[in-house]
Design a protein around this nucleic acid. Sequence first.
DNA 1: ACCTGAACACCGTTCAAGT
DNA 2: ACCTGAACACCGTTCAAGT
Lengths: 220, 220
Amino acid sequence: MGKLTREAVVGQALEIGDAEGLGGVTIRRLAQELGVTPMALYWHFKNKEQLVVGMADHLIQGFVIEEDFSAPWREQLHELVTGLVRVLRRHPCAVQVVDEVDQMAVPSFLRVWDTALGLAKRAGFDYEESCLISRYLLQGAIALAGGPMRRRCPGLSEGEAAERLRVKRLTLQSLPPDVYPHIVEMAVPLAEGADAGLYDTFGVDLLIGGIEAMAARPHR
Amino acid sequence: MGKLTREAVVGQALEIGDAEGLGGVTIRRLAQELGVTPMALYWHFKNKEQLVVGMADHLIQGFVIEEDFSAPWREQLHELVTGLVRVLRRHPCAVQVVDEVDQMAVPSFLRVWDTALGLAKRAGFDYEESCLISRYLLQGAIALAGGPMRRRCPGLSEGEAAERLRVKRLTLQSLPPDVYPHIVEMAVPLAEGADAGLYDTFGVDLLIGGIEAMAARPHR
DNA sequence: ACCTGAACACCGTTCAAGT
DNA sequence: ACCTGAACACCGTTCAAGT
């Protein structure tokens, strides 16, 4: 039995989170799977919140965009968003983790944020606006990574997922059509979610498009 | 002691949630404050999840946008988003509730969604795109209502909030400037969050702007 | 129909103690 | 420095039973 390190704990936590959702990540459960007492974890992490911060940091680690000052800012922003989405997609529980955590406490997230801020400034936005823009972008990327309706459900098998989807579709279809006409009509695409490729490109274009529109209009 | 009704339970739950955050809303706590056994609540709600669904439904209840077919769709969309943001702002815990709940299980949320879907169709988007657009809009509105950094912290007094803000600012300012140059530089606006008015109008314009950009470009 | 009592299987965390 | 044991104050939920 190897030593109990911060990385070992975070790794195991991510494994549980990916398999069963963040709800399954528990100090006691974690300790059990690591062959150790629950209280052992408290030497490595101040509390559970810090454990989740560790998970989030590990997740985003290794995503670095080099600031290429020759490329136009819109392309850089595009790359930033698509890159972040791709990184978050690598772990099923990533969005759940990043959503719950205090993002300002996650170093690797702050790095991404810093880059976004720089790009917003370069695009000509002032201080306050750059803050909004950057938050908007990162939040948007996370929402995109939550992706085509596959949200909030790590922790169920192949067949279970298909069954769940069928139930969701039927639920929507059996809604009263006079009060939810469009939802009933579009029950199929709503339940299934869009094609992943379309979803991503469309979503990113939407985000960047909104920002470009703001950049183009006259500031007071 | 009046009777224990669904509404009484939801009302008390919202009161706790507004004062201390959704984390304070507990079956046992709720029962205690209502002068009743925890198990009494299980006659009125199948489980805690359904309680939260009830909270969410109550929150969005009463927000209805009449479909005005004479107005252009962009104005209607604008009104939809600003209206939703305003409704969510009425309760400090609203965003937390709506974020956690399975939105498809909340009737009043489905009504808003249905309206958004109809407007997207009217704007000329096809089925799949309308699904994306509508999700994007509602998710965006919720994120906006989470607002200028006031996120995730119902449940602390006036002074505590000010202190927390000061700490946050200092934390950001004392970050290593060589690795987080822009964050350190913009620590003040980042920590304080933007002016609420600017935040909302800017955010809504960003959302609608992105959609208009997509509507204007040629579809394949 | 509406609520209680007792019990089950969980949580996070603290604090003193061991090696 | 690194981990354990015992205890505290919580959770959600089930199930049989009361009125």
